[in-house]
Simulated assay, not measured.
Amino acid sequence: MRVEALIKEGELHEALLHLQQLTNFINNNEHGFLKLSLLYYQMGDTESSLAKIRECLKLDQDHKQCFAQYKKVKKLTKLLNEAQLHIKEKKFADCIQKLKSALETERAVKAFRLKIMPDMCKCLSRTNDSKDAIKFCSEALKITPDDEDVLIDRAEAYIVEEEFENAIKDYETAIKNNEGSRRLKDGLTRAKNLFERWKKRSYYEILGVKTTATTQQIKQAYRKLAGLYHPDRHEGAEKKKAARKFIEIVAAMEVLSDTKKREKYDNRKPV
């Protein structure tokens, strides 16, 4: 009764201690080992969960509940271990597949999702799947907001998305907790340099035309890009990004389609 009450109150570690003592007092306690396995599972400890459920099956290999738990834990343990191996071997695409399978295997237990988020963040950022990387990194940071590796991974994903200001914020947050890190300082410098270069892009680069482009070619490029990036054609997070791009396209068009403004722009002093 005490164990059940502790579990309901979320005191899983305390419940685990009582349950271990209770299980040791009773011989042939299949139910106790099953309960221990389930409790470890709720805490996200697959290895311990697997060890306890094996104890149940040693006592009764035909125990239906224990066998079902064994199959589930064994599958999830294998997926998570393989994902870690892929990370070590830098096979990040394979890592993503294993972690996705792990999430499909266990959707309800929060502890597993918390374990998977940082690894998914890392693997996605390494494959330049930046949008999903930002999503998973952000979820991980809700739980551990000062995780240096996750902050760096999200910053790098922001850079791919050309959200340089967000990347700079993540690096600065990480530096507050580890001021002496050369890795963080180099990352921050790189993000700032890329941001400055991005701000200094020419109007020709924005429209994707040559400096010798005719007014007609400039207008054609504008119409094509304006259609792609008009904010009304996008939703959610993409809408904000599209709006920023659309403003740049309009500004470039206003200058390059006007002969006098274009001449003045072409004769400007280098930044």
Rank of each mutant, 00 (worst) to 15 (best):
K8C: 00
K8F: 01
K8G: 09
G10H: 08
L12V: 02
H13F: 14
A15S: 13
L17R: 15
F25N: 13
I26G: 11
N27I: 06
F33H: 15
Y41M: 07
L59H: 05
Q61V: 06
D62L: 06
F67Q: 11
Q69V: 00
K74P: 01
K75H: 05
L76V: 03
L76Y: 01
L79I: 01
E82C: 04
E89I: 03
K100D: 09
S101H: 10
L103R: 11
A108T: 12
A111E: 14
F112S: 03
L114W: 01
K122E: 12
L124V: 02
N128Y: 05
D129S: 08
D129P: 00
D129N: 12
K131S: 05
D132N: 14
I134L: 08
I134A: 12
C137A: 12
S138G: 14
I143S: 12
P145N: 06
E148M: 14
D153C: 10
D153N: 15
A155E: 03
E156G: 02
I159K: 15
E162H: 10
F164N: 11
E165H: 10
A167Q: 08
D170Y: 04
Y171L: 07
E172I: 04
K176E: 14
G180V: 02
G180F: 05
G180Y: 06
R183S: 13
L188Y: 04
R190K: 14
A191Q: 15
L194Y: 13
L194V: 07
F195D: 07
R197F: 08
W198E: 13
K199H: 07
R201D: 09
Y204A: 00
E205M: 05
V209A: 08
T211P: 00
T214L: 10
T214Y: 08
I218T: 05
K219Y: 09
Q220F: 03
K224I: 05
K224W: 06
H230C: 08
R233M: 08
E238D: 11
K239E: 15
K240E: 11
K241E: 13
A243C: 03
A243R: 13
K245E: 13
I249V: 09
V250L: 08
M253E: 13
M253L: 12
L256M: 00
S257Y: 03
D258F: 06
K264G: 07
Y265D: 07
Y265I: 02
D266W: 00
D266R: 00
N267A: 15
N267D: 14
